Simulated assay, not measured.
Amino acid sequence: MSTSLMARLGELDLPDRLAPAVPRWATQVAVALLCAAGVEIVRAGVNAIVPGSAAFALVFPAIMVATLFARWQAGLLTATISICYTLFIIYLPAAATRTVVNPHLAVFAVGIAALLTIALAETFRRAVNRATRERDSEIADRDLMLTEFEHRVKNNFAIVAGMLDIQRRRTGDPAAAEALGAAMMRVDSIARAHRHLYRDGQGSEVNVRDYLEDLCGALSDALLLRGGVTLDCDADAATIQRDHAVSIGLVLNELVTNAAKHAFEGRERGSIHVSWKRRDDGWRLTVADDGVGMPPGKKPARRDGGLGQRLIEAFAKQAGGTLSTVSDANGTQVTMDLPD
C-alpha cells in the first residue's frame, strides 16, 4: 500500500465524520462487524482455491483497516471477533482431526501480533490526523494573511488613483488632465488584475475571461462610451500568470483608449470589439474598431503622439506577445499573439 493511500486512509476518521448523526461507538461497532465479515468472505474464497490455508492470516489486514477508519476501539473489536470466530469455528475443529500447534500458544501469538498491528495503525492514524490539523491551520493562517494583504493592496491602489484624480481635477492644463486620466485607468487595470487574482483563488493565476470582461466594462464607463459608440468583449476561458494578465490588461487599456479617442473623429456612431481567443499555438488578443482608419503613410497605432504606442510595445514584450496592425478606411484592427 503506497504512502499517499495510507495517508488518505488515515485522514478518513469515520466516527468524527458521521457524528453527531451517528454515535461514535455505533460507527466503530459497525466498522468492526463489516471488517470481520469481510475476513470470513475473503477466507471462504481463499479456501475454495487453497483449502486449509493459514487460518489467522487474513485477520491482520482487517484489523489495520478498522483501526485506520474507526480508531483503535474498532480494531480491537475486529480482532476479538475474528480471532474468536477463527479459533472456535475453524482452528479447534481442525485440531481435533489432525495434529496442529498448541491452540493456546497460537492464540497468544496471534493476539500479540494483533495488538502490535492495532498500535502501529493507531499511531499512524494519529500522526496523519495531527499533520492534517497542522496543515489546515497553516492554510487558514495563509488565507488570513492573503486577505489582509489583498485589503492593503486594494487600499494602496485606491490611494494612488485618488491622488491622480485630485491632481487631474486641480490642473488647468487639458493635456495634463488627459495624461493623469490615462494614468488613472492604467492603475485601475492593474488593480483589477490583482482583485481577480485573489477573488478567483487560483494562487498566482488570473481568470482572463472574467478579468477582460470586467476591464472592458470599466473602460466603457470611464471613456463615456454611450449609445453611438459601443464596446463589447468576447473572451474564451483561460487562466494565466498574474504578471502576464496585468500586461495584457494594460495593452487592452491602451488600445481601447486610443480607439475611443481617435477612431471616430467626425462620427457619432461606431463600435469597438475586443476578443480573446484560443489558437493552435497560443492565444490572440484582438482590438478592432470600425472607425475612420489610419491616414495613409502614417505608422499604425501612433494615434497619441507615440507614448501610447511605446507603452503598448513595452507591455506586449513583457507579456511575450507579438503585435500586428491592419488599418484601412473600414477601421483598424490590432492583434497580439501570445504563445502557450
Rank of each mutant, 00 (worst) to 15 (best):
A30V: 06
L33I: 15
L33K: 02
L33S: 06
L34M: 05
L34D: 03
G38S: 07
R43M: 07
G45N: 12
N47E: 13
V50N: 12
P51M: 02
G52I: 05
S53A: 12
S53F: 15
A57E: 04
F60R: 03
T67C: 04
T67Y: 02
F69I: 14
F69T: 14
F69S: 08
W72H: 12
W72G: 05
W72P: 02
Q73W: 02
L77G: 08
I81G: 01
Y85I: 08
Y85F: 07
Y85R: 05
T86L: 11
I89C: 14
P93D: 03
P93S: 12
A96L: 03
R98Y: 01
T99V: 08
V100T: 15
H104T: 09
F108W: 12
A109F: 09
A113F: 02
A114G: 05
T123P: 00
R125M: 04
R125L: 06
R130S: 13
R130H: 12
A131N: 09
R133E: 13
D136R: 15
S137C: 02
E138P: 00
M145E: 15
T147I: 05
T147E: 09
F149E: 15
N156T: 14
A158R: 05
A158T: 09
V160S: 08
A161N: 09
G162Q: 05
L164R: 00
R168K: 14
